[in-house]
Each structure stands twice: as structure tokens, then as C-alpha cells.
Design a protein around this nucleic acid. Structure first.
Lengths: 249, 249
DNA sequence: TAAATAGCTGCAAAAAACCGCACAAACTCT
DNA sequence: AGAGTTTGTGCGGTTTTTTGCAGCTATTTA
């Protein structure tokens, strides 16, 4: 196998799997480890991949993972937030969860908006209180320290009494098969109730969380009315959700 | 799993949840605890995260936590706060109002204290959440924007269900004849309920507010068990309250 | 205060990377 | 065409990196 061929093959594998192992490569191509090592060295020098101990990673891998050092992809969340606020209208009763995306959304609410925001999230409330004209209602209960939201039977019974116009949820994982999933028992219960208590349900999620799932199921896609990501609505990664009848923004 | 992959995965988890546990990581990635520990050490050295006992925290999280928006703290309120915390014991259920004095008190709670703090004040909750070991319960209702406390029938009915060990109130006016008075209708109602719901009632007030009164009466001195000011307890300005049977600190 | 849990240090084994060299294929230049 | 040169490849031995383990210390928790 020629050198150029090997290079092309390595790049191909890398595009498919974002990762190659030196061992696999030298077995498949039936060359020595040294040859592979030198191939990777050259491709790395040409900045076509990232060489690591034991193999190599694709450039996109590093971009996605390490480009976003501080606040996690704030620009993506800002895009999501901007789309989300367009759904809020004057006079609405809005139920929101917690999380950084919801806080971003709180920051970009138009100043002249008049609506009532109901939440159990402390960071969200802190933002809502800065707004000049919206009303803020806090759902009370014991506060979960790590996620800083009120959580418990008291909170759930309060949410059950609501019939909000719209509900915004930052979600951890969504998948066309498993629906919306979560890894925290209490938070999952809470989100489930919030969904039931609202006429429209808007899920906010960065695209990395698409097509991932976690142990606890919150609901299927049929309960979701809107899905907002930082991607344009016609991105192919969103096809499954379109098909499921979700409005994708 | 390659080392870089592990690092990327750890950062990913961290960005999603602001926190990772060493144990979870070594189970998910199927490597030894030592490997995870070394990964965290390296990422910590590269200032990508903050290593703590048992896991790691994201940088953005710590920034929020330790953000140095140190409000200037008047000496008097600090003195009052120091006296007030001495009344809190482990295992107590503590009901607190809002106001700057209460927030000062929240800041000086001893780190090893274990108690449950119940409040409707957003600024107070923000402080309580920084404490490592206390439980925090939020009283829910519509939030009064100017005083940043939850207020309304819902809050009042919740407080009625309580039987707290002790209640701390920052007060606006106190007088040996009129008792404790207030100028906000909603806040007055709330404080009245909080006093009824607690075995001990501690009033916190800077000395300037002594012997002043406002239009709305909350209660007489007989309902107050403790009064704390920045003055030494034997100051002559406090004589009236001594005589009324209030413990003056 | 004692048990449990997490961290640290040194060590050893395995894997991977590296270095120098030899040899073969390809390419160049007369 | 053929000798010399460049380039690519594989092999043996050495070095570095990575990882897990055992024993010990420090911290946390009950």
C-alpha cells in the first residue's frame, strides 16, 4: 500500500470515527508500527490531525471539545436564547426551568415585555428580577444545592395547580427514540410536571446534546411542541424531530 | 479510551453539569481511580477545571461562586450579624426575613453549621446557597421586585404550616410603645405570620431605628424574645426593651 | 474519636514512541 | 542505460509514557 493511499485511508477513517488507533491501522494496512507512526507524524505536521499517544484524533474533535474554555459555548446558547424569546408574548404566563441556557434567555428578554415568569430556579430568578416590567413568581420548596432549583413535593403540587401558556426547559439529552431524558431523579420529576402544566413545551438544547440519552425518561417527543438549537432549522441533524411533529426553530 | 478522549469527556461532563465525581468517571470510562486522579491533576494544572476532594468543578461555576461582588458591609450590621449567629444551633429550623442585615448574617454563618434555613428572600437565599452544609428552603410566591422577597397568600399559608425554632427579622422601626412597625402592607403581613410561626423571635436593628415608628403595626414587644443592635447590651438606649422583658444582646 | 473514603508516593509492567541503521525502491542526471 | 541520490520501509534496541497496584497519609463523616 502506497504512502499516499495510507494517508487518504487514515483521513477517511478519521472523518468517520473522529479517532484512529495506531494498532488498528498497522493491522488493517499490514505495515509496521513505525510506518504508521511516521504517517501520523507527517499528517500531524501538516495539521491534518492531532497525534496522541496510541493513535490520532480528528481536528473537529479538538475544536468542539476544547475551543469553548470558559462558559460553555455561550455564543450557541445566546443564539438559542434569541430564538426562544421570540415565542414569548405580552401577557403570557411562562414557566421555566433552570440551567445556563434559561439564564441566557432571561438576559435577552426584551425590556418592554410584560409577562409573568414562574420558576423554581434561583439563578433564573436573579436574572428575571433585573427586568423592569415582568412579574416573577417563585416556586417554593427545599433547594437542591447543586442545581440551585427548588425541588420536592411542595414544588410539584404547586406546578400541578398551574396552567401556563408556555414552558421553557433546558434539557440534558434528547433523542428521537428515547425522547427527553435526564440523569437526576428529582429534576426529572419536576420537568415532567412542568410539561404537563403547560400548553406549549419548548425544549432548548445545544446540538451536542441531540441524539444522546440518559437513564431517566421525562417524556416522548409527542409532548414537545418546539425544539430550539443553535442550528438552522433545516439542518439534517434535526430531521428526526421534524418528522416527529416537533416545531424546530 | 485515549487520554485526550478522557480529558475531552471530563470537560464535556463538567460543562454540562458543572461538577464531576471521580468515582462516576472511573466507572463510566472503565479505568482505575488513579488514572482519573491523574487526569484531573493534569487538567487542573492546565487550569481547565478546579480539583476538589472527590472530583472537580468547572471554572465557570467557581467564578460564579467566588465572584467578588463584595458589597460594602457597614460595621454596624456586621456586629449585629455576629451576635445573631450565636443564637443558631445545629439542627435548628431557622426562619428568616430579608434585608441587608439578614444577608450580613448569612455571610457569617459558621461553615460547619448544620441547620435548615427557610426564607422568602432572594438575596438571602443567594447567600445561604454558598454555605457548604445548611439546607435551604424557599418560600414560594410572587416576588416583590423592590424588596426581592416572595409575598402573597401562598407564602403566608406556607408560613402558617411552619413551627420554626427561631425567626430572624431585620426590622425598620421599633419602639417600646408601638412595638415593631413597618411601612409596607405586604411585608407587614408576612412578618406577622413569621413571628407567629416561630418559638423564638429575634429582631435585628441598627440603633438609629430604635424608638421610631411607622404606620403599620406588626406586633408588640411581648412577642419579641431577642433584640440585637450594634450597641453593647447595657447601653441606656436599650433600657426600655430590657424592662419589657426582651433579651437584649 | 474511629471508621471510611480519597489522595499521594513509589514501583513495576506494558505499551507506545523514538533512534539509528540497513536495505530496497524510485528518481535523477549525465 | 547506469551510477548516484533520494525516499520509503522494516528491524532491533532504548527511552518515554501510561497505567494499575500496594502501602501509607490525609481528609471527611458518622
Amino acid at each position: 500500500m502506497l504512502k499516499k493511499e495510507r494517508h487518504a485511508f487514515i483521513m477517511h477513517q478519521l472523518n468517520l470515527h473522529n479517532k484512529v488507533l495506531s494498532n488498528d491501522l498497522c493491522q488493517i494496512m499490514e505495515v509496521s508500527e513505525d510506518t504508521i507512526r511516521r504517517d501520523l507524524q507527517e499528517l500531524s505536521a501538516a495539521e491534518k490531525l492531532i497525534k496522541v499517544h496510541g493513535g490520532a484524533l480528528s481536528l473537529s474533535f479538538s475544536e468542539v471539545q476544547f475551543s469553548t474554555d470558559h462558559l460553555y459555548s455561550p455564543e450557541k446558547k445566546r443564539i438559542i436564547a434569541e430564538k426562544a424569546v421570540s415565542l414569548v408574548e405580552n401577557g403570557m404566563f411562562v414557566l421555566t426551568g433552570g440551567g445556563t441556557t434559561i439564564v441566557e434567555m432571561a438576559k435577552v428578554l426584551p425590556p418592554q415585555l410584560r409577562a409573568t415568569f414562574i420558576t423554581g430556579s434561583i439563578p433564573a430568578v436573579n436574572e428575571y428580577l433585573k427586568h423592569p416590567s415582568i412579574d416573577v413568581v417563585m416556586i417554593g420548596d427545599k433547594i437542591l444545592k447543586d442545581s440551585k432549583i427548588t425541588c420536592g413535593s411542595e414544588a410539584i403540587s404547586k406546578i400541578r395547580q398551574l396552567n401556563a401558556d408556555i414552558c421553557f426547559l433546558g434539557i440534558n439529552a434528547i433523542d428521537s427514540k428515547s425522547g427527553v431524558t435526564e440523569n437526576d431523579w428529582e429534576v426529572a420529576n419536576l420537568k415532567r410536571e412542568m410539561i404537563e402544566a403547560s400548553k406549549k413545551v419548548v425544549c432548548l438544547s445545544i446540538s451536542e446534546k441531540l441524539n444522546s440519552s440518559q437513564p431517566l425518561r421525562i417524556c416522548g417527543l409527542e409532548k414537545i411542541t418546539h425544539l430550539i438549537t443553535e442550528l438552522p432549522p433545516d439542518d439534517k441533524r434535526l430531521n428526526d424531530y421534524h418528522k416527529a411533529g416537533v416545531i424546530v426553530l
